[in-house]
């Protein structure tokens, strides 16, 4: 199945791969063929910086349940961060 489900946004942050830390400029979240997961499809999450190269990438393949849990954690952390007034 080729879902063609993919959304890309510009982001600002840092990520770490085997070459060390690098600035990330783009996040893509999709649901399509998994490359390494056992499942046929997975949530495909990529943090990239194509100004550096195609290898400047941190990738995740998650099942939907894990994606939902991650989404809830992100939302919770953001709410708590905003409540501190430290942002």
């Amino acid at each position: 199945m080729c879902t063609m489900i993919a959304e890309t946004s510009s982001i600002s942050g840092m990520a770490k791969n085997e070459n060390g830390w690098f600035a990330v400029t783009r996040a893509t979240v999709g649901y399509d063929h998994a490359t390494h997961s056992k499942a046929e499809h997975a949530l495909l999450i990529d943090f990239t910086n194509y100004d550096i190269g195609l290898g400047a990438r941190v990738a995740l393949e998650l099942d939907l349940e894990s994606g939902r849990a991650l989404l809830a954690q992100l939302q919770s952390a953001i709410v708590q961060a905003e409540a501190t007034g430290l942002h």
Partner: peptide
């Protein structure tokens, strides 16, 4: 034309640009 890297890195770039 999307650039070069491991096949899955290239696939990620293609995916990020809508195929």
């Amino acid at each position: 034309r999307f650039g070069h890297g491991t096949p899955d890195d290239v696939f990620a770039k293609v995916r990020s640009e809508g195929g």
